[in-house]
């Protein structure tokens, strides 16, 4: 099984709480604004992510989700 990390950019309000709780320092605040006018978070180092869900638990806006993808499907870039 592989996992896919998704950030709903337009739900994010750029509070930065997920950045502080990430044990691997994967997340950073983007310099591009979203629809709401906030600077959303993005995965600066996606390969370091261990899917611990700390950011998902902390996010007040349910902007971060992790879905399961079947291993042998072609990864969509």
């Amino acid at each position: 099984m592989t996992y896919e990390f998704n950030i709903d950019v337009d739900r994010c309000k750029g509070c930065g709480l997920c950045v502080t709780v990430c044990p691997k320092k994967v997340l950073e605040i983007s310099d591009k604004v979203n629809k709401k006018g906030y600077y959303p978070v993005y995965q600066a180092r996606p390969d370091d992510c261990i899917f611990c869900k700390a950011c998902c638990l902390m996010c007040p806006d349910v902007a971060i989700t992790i879905t399961e993808t079947v291993k042998d499907t072609v990864k969509q870039e």
Binding site: K13, G14, G16, L17, L57, C59, P60
Partner: peptide, 10 residues
């Protein structure tokens, strides 16, 4: 409608 970082959402 909560402010950024408001824990109501959690």
């Amino acid at each position: 409608h909560y402010c950024p970082g408001c824990t109501h959402g959690v």
